[in-house]
Nucleic acid binder design. Structure first.
Length: 188
DNA sequence: CACCTGATTGCCT
DNA sequence: GGCAATCAGGTGA
């Protein structure tokens, strides 16, 4: 898929884009090491109208990249320890974004095991996903179209279903089923 | 400027 | 399944 098509797709409504993004790849090239995962779990976050969004209370130094053009990477530190990565969607200034919560290790698995210090649970959580891919605050504000962290179009395996439900760790707006998980056939 | 809480993880029981 | 680690942003005085 061409970069322009990806930009166009990212400019849609957050929940729609989030659902569409399942099955796509996130690839990174950090310090010469190439790694990649297939996205299987995401969450959509709105801008000013979403109480659960970091952008709810306006633009700040921390969430600045959320307000930029779709395709911008928004990385923030969670619990003072972990990094979490989001991909900005919608229109510039709208500040809606998709949190990458989990993926299936695909490229450079040995590198990811090294970064994680273990061979299992490499990217089944937002913090783990960033650790495995080598994503840090340095990548905040870069473009997923042509930056060090890239979004590559893909398709879900035949027969894969998509579950949706309330977002994890969120106490407000739990009525929005904006968490999407891809369930491959055979999986529980 | 002090206090509180979290879009989490991993180790312990 | 429970809980500590750890710190920056947000909130309120």
């Amino acid at each position: 898929m061409r970069s322009e098509d990806i930009r166009t797709l990212l400019s849609g409504d957050v929940p729609d884009v989030a659902r569409e993004m399942l099955g796509w790849w996130i690839t990174t090239k950090v310090s010469g090491q190439s790694t990649g995962i297939v996205i299987c779990e995401v969450e959509a976050y709105g801008g000013a109208e979403d109480p659960a969004s970091h952008a709810y209370r306006g633009r700040t130094t921390r969430n600045d990249s959320m307000f930029r053009e779709p395709g911008t990477l928004y990385v923030y530190r969670s619990y003072g320890v972990h990094w979490c990565a989001n991909i900005v969607t919608g229109r510039a200034g709208e500040a809606s974004a998709i949190l990458l919560r989990g993926g299936t290790p695909d490229v450079g698995i040995d590198t990811m095991e090294l970064r994680r210090g273990r061979a299992d649970h490499l990217a089944d959580g937002p913090g783990k996903l960033c650790a495995a891919l080598g994503i840090t605050g340095d990548d905040d504000g870069t473009s997923v179209i042509d930056g060090p962290v890239r979004l590559v179009a893909g398709v879900l395996q035949e027969g894969t279903t998509i579950d949706s439900g309330p977002r994890i760790g969120i106490t407000t707006a739990i009525d929005r089923p904006w968490r999407f998980v891809a369930r491959e056939p055979g999986m529980l």
